[in-house]
Write a protein that binds this DNA or RNA. Structure first.
Length: 587
RNA sequence: CGGGGUGUGGCGCAGUUGGUAGCGCGCCUGGUUUGGGACCAGGAGGCCGGGAGUUCAAGUCUCCCCUCCCCGACCA
């Protein structure tokens, strides 16, 4: 039985000044964690219990899916990470250190290399596969900006697992098994989640999905449909395919538009001097041509122009994800100087495209559908052109997802509006493919005696981050409200009596009886502490069931308080054990 | 890494034109209290983030560095 009188904890009456987000504030205030280093936290007894419970659930489900637990050192030698180039590639995010002989080591930020080499070390036949291995391990990343307490630290606890398969079908099966397991884990943790498509970037074609807990303080932005179950990382959203515009259009007409280098000035000018009969001109009638520079890995550069509706912004990150590994930036003045055909503020697609006069590559956002009509630059300073039709008057070299995704955009799956939300990344499943196996030489003999490169998946759950995420979901103004499965104890008994009186004796007896039934009990046995203080502490600490043994004992009752529901029920002392055990057992 | 803020007993804060640090909570002792963060009396506890400088004298002024928080960049 944990006793408040001796428990190593100190609750704080005031919020710590350096904590902003609720999980950080409350975990410190209720005595679960203390900051020990930049981006590093000490787990106090109550917090350590919660962390271990989360860990136990993760372990239980991983074992159930047939994954096997191993444990690597956190301190790893440089040479292995040289093999995959990640000693350099990781940059400043990698903690590097030297031993007494000057040899380089690192603190593992993730363990793909180690797992790959371990399997290579032990296995050499297709008969050994598939296999999934995992560990629950402290990870180190020298984050540029640790923030929000446990949500982004430089040292944190993570479950990482890796699957090894002989072929793509096997990888898909392992991936799905992990995905299903993650769903079970987060369900047991009571963490709400959405599974969003993530960009797989340079890895090429592999599936990757993130599990996001939809919480405002999260760092990841995603979209989800207001109607169907579509959701995706903002970078990975695909535009709903719209029907071509088949209406007839007037012939193009070049007009003088002095001093209209911006979309806003152009729209104002049009409404003042070329008013439409049916409605006013808006930014969405204009075609904006964004000039970008691609920087390729070999150091060469290219100019790319992207056409987007004038009321939308281009999302450089999203574009970059599609031209990876090239980097994307706006074309600078020097770049413009090399392309006199590009008249800033008056660029139109008539001079763009691989087969055009300039030869500059030109891609359209899919929202610029075939047959649609636009107002755009005439490639002459002070002139624009009306009624320019995609397909009739100009063509592009192709399409690229370019506009910044906005709330209200149509869902690619059902056309209903999308909404934008924030989330905490609590898990990630990723089909790695053969990247690491190729580089590190992990292959096995197949049934024909031929060497086959193994295909891998990697899967992560932030265990310490999950604790913070749960605290973000389950709290109120008074304090934390843990789900039963991960509460540090099952029951918090508050006795309001003095040492040795009937109330205290009854409280102690109840605690012992509950413990005998297998429940974990915290009893507030502090002498001389006023009931108000004990109630406040109990609410702050957030055990889901609070039992008050106090003045109602005179009527033979105890009080059963539900921290989640906020209810307070009088229960005869004689029935208390049975009631409380039933409550805890039903979860 | 850019921008903004911040740093003073365990926690929250004050500290004037430079004169050697104070309040509330918490903690200790004694007493009175005991159903919503009690009261009285007496105590303990601080290299004022660090370093260098200006000055007879620095929490306070100057310079450099660091921390933490927020926004952005970055983030398997």
């Amino acid at each position: 039985m944990l006793r408040s009188s001796t428990l190593f904890v100190r609750t704080l009456r005031d919020d710590p000044a350096d904590a902003e987000v609720p999980s950080h504030r409350l975990l410190v205030r209720a005595g679960y964690i203390r900051r020990a280093a930049p981006g590093g936290y000490t787990w106090l007894p109550l917090g350590w219990r919660v962390l271990r419970k989360v860990e136990a659930i993760v372990r239980d489900e991983m074992d159930s899916m047939g994954a096997q637990e191993v444990h690597f050192p956190a301190m790893l030698p440089r040479d292995i990470y040289e093999l995959t180039g990640r000693w350099e590639e990781y940059g400043d995010n990698l903690f590097r250190l030297k031993d007494r002989r000057g040899a380089d080591f690192l603190l593992g930020p993730t363990h793909e290399e180690m797992f790959t080499l371990l399997v290579k070390d032990l296995y050499s036949s297709y008969k050994d596969l598939p296999v999934s291995l995992y560990q629950i391990q402290t990870k180190y990343r020298d984050e540029a900006r640790p923030r929000a307490g446990l949500l982004r630290g430089r040292e944190f606890l993570m479950k990482d697992s890796y699957s090894f398969d002989i072929d793509d079908a096997g990888l898909a099966a392992s991936y799905n098994a992990h995905r299903d397991t993650y769903e079970r884990i987060f369900t047991r943790l009571k963490l709400p989640y959405v599974i969003v498509k993530a960009m797989s970037g340079a890895m090429g074609g592999s599936a990757s999905e993130e599990f996001l807990a939809p919480i405002e303080v999260g760092e990841d932005t995603f979209v989800r449909c207001t109607k169907c179950d579509y959701s995706a990382n903002t970078e990975a959203v695909t535009t709903a395919v719209l029907a071509p515009d088949t209406s007839s259009h007037a012939a193009t007409a070049v007009i003088e538009t002095p001093n209209c280098p911006t979309i806003a000035s152009l729209v104002d000018f049009l409404n003042a001097n070329h008013a439409r009969a049916d409605r006013v001109w808006t930014a969405s009638d204009t075609l904006k041509n964004v000039v970008l520079q691609l920087r390729h890995p070999d150091g060469t550069t290219d100019v790319l122009v992207v056409g987007v509706p004038g009321d939308r912004d281009a999302d450089i990150k999203r574009i970059e994800a599609q031209v990876s590994p090239s980097e994307v930036e706006p074309l600078d003045d020097a770049g413009f100087a090399k392309h006199p055909g590009l008249i800033r503020g008056y660029i139109g697609p008539q001079v763009l495209g691989a087969t055009s006069a300039t030869g500059i590559r030109y891609l359209l956002d899919p929202s610029v559908v075939a047959g649609s009509e636009w107002v755009t630059g005439a490639n002459v300073a002070g002139s624009h052109v009306l009624h320019l039709v995609n397909g009739r008057d100009f063509t592009a070299d192709g399409t690229i997802e370019a506009v910044e995704v906005a709330a209200g955009d149509p869902c690619p799956s059902c056309r209903e509006p999308l909404e934008i939300a924030r989330g905490i990344e609590i898990g990630h499943v990723f089909q790695l493919g053969r990247k690491y196996a190729d580089t590190l030489g992990l292959s096995v003999l197949d049934q024909n005696g031929k060497q086959v490169v193994v295909t891998m998946g990697s899967y992560g759950i932030g265990v310490s981050r999950a604790v913070a995420s749960i605290a973000e979901v389950f709290h109120d103004d008074l304090g934390l409200k843990w789900p039963r499965a991960i509460s540090p104890v099952d029951v918090h008994i508050v006795v309001t009596g003095k040492n040795g009186d009937d109330i205290t004796v009854a409280g102690e007896k109840l605690g012992a009886e509950l413990e005998a039934k297998g429940l974990e009990v915290l009893i507030d046995d502090r002498n001389g502490v006023s009931p108000g203080v004990k109630f406040k502490d109990a609410e702050l600490i957030g055990i889901p069931t609070i039992v008050v043994v106090g003045k109602s004992l005179a009527d033979g009752n105890i009080e059963l308080r539900d921290r989640h529901a906020g209810t307070n029920e009088a229960v005869p002392l004689a029935n208390a054990v049975q009631r409380i055990v039933a409550l805890v057992r039903e979860g």
